[in-house]
Simulated assay, not measured.
Amino acid sequence: MVITVTMNPAMDKTLVLDGFTLGEVNRVVLGRNDIGGKGINVSKVLKEFGEDSLALGFLGGILEEVFLKELKTMGIGQRFVPVKGSTRTNIKVVDRVKGTFTDINEPGPVIQEEELTEFLRLYRETVTSGDVVVLSGGVSEGIPVKIYRLLTEIAKEKGALVALDAEGELFREALEAKPDMVKPNDRELALYLGKEHLTEDEIVDAAKELVAKGISKVLVSRGEKGSILATAEGILKAEGLKVLVKSTVGAGDSMVAAIIYSVLKGYGPRETLAMAQAAGAAAVMTEGTKACTLQEVESLLQAATEKIKEEKR
């Protein structure tokens, strides 16, 4: 079973405009609402790939029933802990004229101690040997920064694999428990190393170091520049695919879903990287945080594969 954890879900409200001006009345051309949060986004993509998952996390307020109804409609299993606070709404402003994508994200509810205790009980009860656990995204106030480290430790004690997609102290702490797979982007990896930005060689060196520490797959996404995959077998680099970008939200989540899909199918490093690159590209071609389909990803696989090269140094 694939288990996705979303500690701070959000209703993603996407507003598309033909020109956005601060301090003025702006007219929305297109709008859509999508239930989201990074773990939920991974579950949505996996469902489109024909793979079931179980979504865990916290939900509260007037959006709780909306999320539960949507998850049921999508056929995604869930075991969310109800909380006193309200699930947040994130606004995504897409200016088609300027080609800009602006996120305005709410902080989310404050998680009470008893709510976190209930989640940990539920998590321990749910995770079993052979599962793949996805720990993804930020957390609400009231959740300790060591939470992903703890959840990784629990999962590995039970014989489950762990995939991590987080940043900052959440990422740093979780690495101490040695998750099996990590997917930082280049900015997040630079933050981890205490630098403003990284050269390609520095990304490769950092990825190699993480593999040497016991992390089997390190995928570093670089937006339009492509991505780099490090495993014990070596380093693979993928150039970015040139596609029509409609929304940048959820691209990383689609890449995480592609990694999980590749693990389930027994793919090797080159197939895994091609799948991740194609999924990321397919995701930015969709509106809002609508999940890309397997057919859309497969249509890009050949082009993605052709852009993969092995690092020789």
Score class of each variant (00 low, 15 high):
residue 13 K to Q: 15
residue 283 A to H: 00
residue 80 F to P: 02
residue 183 K to P: 02
residue 241 L to R: 10
residue 233 E to G: 10
residue 267 Y to I: 02
residue 15 L to N: 06
residue 305 T to Q: 04
residue 209 E to A: 14
residue 114 E to M: 01
residue 35 I to M: 04
residue 55 A to C: 10
residue 75 G to A: 03
residue 230 A to Q: 12
residue 81 V to C: 06
residue 292 C to N: 09
residue 115 E to D: 13
residue 92 K to Q: 04
residue 174 A to Q: 06
residue 197 H to G: 08
residue 234 G to R: 04
residue 195 K to F: 04
residue 169 E to H: 08
residue 175 L to G: 10
residue 148 Y to M: 12
residue 292 C to V: 05
residue 160 A to L: 12
residue 188 E to G: 11
residue 228 I to L: 15
residue 236 L to V: 02
residue 241 L to K: 07
residue 55 A to W: 12
residue 287 E to H: 08
residue 55 A to T: 11
residue 56 L to D: 13
residue 92 K to M: 08
residue 206 A to W: 04
residue 105 N to I: 06
residue 306 E to P: 01
residue 188 E to V: 07
residue 169 E to A: 14
residue 11 M to V: 14
residue 271 E to N: 05
residue 13 K to E: 12
residue 295 Q to M: 01
residue 11 M to Q: 13
residue 291 A to C: 02
residue 228 I to N: 03
residue 178 K to Y: 07
residue 190 A to N: 05
residue 103 D to N: 15
residue 51 E to D: 12
residue 71 L to Q: 07
residue 190 A to T: 07
residue 99 G to A: 11
residue 214 G to Q: 08
residue 269 P to C: 03
residue 13 K to C: 10
residue 272 T to R: 01
residue 247 S to C: 15
residue 88 R to Q: 11
residue 212 A to P: 03
residue 32 R to K: 14
residue 43 S to W: 09
residue 16 V to F: 11
residue 176 E to P: 01
residue 281 A to L: 08
residue 256 V to H: 01
residue 24 E to K: 14
residue 286 T to M: 14
residue 47 K to T: 12
residue 211 V to M: 09
residue 172 R to N: 14
residue 259 I to P: 00
residue 223 G to M: 04
residue 242 K to W: 04
residue 43 S to D: 11
residue 26 N to A: 11
residue 29 V to R: 15
residue 83 V to A: 02
residue 295 Q to A: 09
residue 193 L to F: 05
residue 100 T to P: 08
residue 124 R to N: 07
residue 294 L to M: 08
